[in-house]
């Protein structure tokens, strides 16, 4: 089954005619994702390597049957692009674009949530279900099919952990990057819920970082609602307070949002936390071995 993206994903790339949009859109198609359309206002009627381009997302939905959108437009147009996708009937929006003002994202979140829209990002690497579909910028060749669901705020850290899992013979059901901004479309809990319901996922690796309290909330959710084993990793133990560590959301405010507090919250709920990506992979092997 996998989560968020799979063989039924019919992708429209908003910004397909741009350099990055084209590169990654076509890469996603080469992987096997059904990339059915691109949208660039004013370029309707053109095509990008055979993928038809429309002026509006509504046309991409009506004429090409798109059900998922990947947003690859510059930050200042991204909010508009997301509203356009949602209003056109797109059910899943994956926003790779970074740099969206937090206030805009706050309004988007409150707008899409009651509509039941699934959104990843902004500022995220996307989602990859190995062997099925890749939407975003995750290098698929690092991962293989398997039973470990990975959810993370970060891209390259996920690759690091995925790589260590692959080296130990463990594959993935889906790798989900929720994004590093203060407000993102899906929380850890949203994705954990899906992994819990997904019959291909047997084990969950959950990669958090400093800032906010999503990890603490996820810890409580895992205790009450997740029956599958979860292994966690938290980045940012050495981060000083008050400094943004690359991701806009990765900031310790006063004494809240520290890696130590998150680790303690997870451990208090019985979740094992690896101290390095290597140890996370070792723990995953241990748990997977015990279940096999």
């Amino acid at each position: 089954m996998a989560v968020i993206v799979d063989r039924d994903t019919r992708l429209v790339v908003q910004g397909l005619t741009g350099r990055e949009g084209r590169f990654h859109g076509l890469r996603n198609r080469d992987y096997g994702t059904q990339v059915v359309a691109g949208v660039t206002p004013g370029k309707g009627g053109q095509d990008v390597d055979g993928v038809p381009v429309f002026d509006t997302v509504a046309e991409a939905v009506d004429e090409a049957g798109a059900n998922t959108s990947m947003v690859f437009v510059p930050a200042r147009f991204a909010a508009d692009a997301i509203y356009e996708a949602v209003d056109a009937g797109i059910g899943t929006v994956i926003c790779i674009a970074e740099g969206l003002p937090a206030h805009e994202m706050l309004r988007i979140y409150n707008y899409i949530r009651p509509c039941g829209i699934t959104m990843l990002g902004p500022n995220c690497p996307g989602a990859l279900s190995p062997g099925k579909a890749n939407v975003g910028i995750i290098p698929a060749e690092i991962f293989r099919e398997g039973a470990v669901g990975v959810v993370s705020r970060s891209g390259t850290l996920t690759y690091q952990i995925g790589h260590e899992l692959t080296q130990r013979g463990l594959g993935n059901s889906t790798i989900v990057g929720i994004g590093g901004d203060p407000v993102v479309g899906s929380s850890f809990i949203d994705v954990l819920q899906r992994f819990e319901a997904d019959d291909e996922t047997e084990l969950i690796v959950f990669v958090g970082e400093i800032g906010g309290d999503e990890e603490e909330k996820a810890a409580a959710f895992i205790e009450t609602d997740v029956t599958k084993p979860v292994i966690a990793y938290i980045a940012g133990f050495t981060a000083p307070p008050g400094k943004t560590m690359g991701h806009a959301g990765a900031i310790i405010s006063g004494s809240s949002g520290t890696a130590q507090a998150k680790k303690e919250a997870l451990e208090a709920r019985g979740v094992r936390v690896g101290t390095t990506p290597t140890e996370v992979a070792d723990l995953a092997v241990e748990v997977a071995g015990a279940r096999a």
Binding site: E209, T238, M245
Partner: peptide
């Protein structure tokens, strides 16, 4: 770039991986 007070200069790609690298250095 964020200045810290140690002596191992770190360069990486991606915020999460760099944060993780700092932690591993400390470990």
């Amino acid at each position: 770039y964020v200045k810290l007070d140690g002596d191992v200069g770190i360069l990486g790609n991606g915020a999460g991986l760099v944060m993780s690298t700092l932690d591993v250095i400390a470990l």
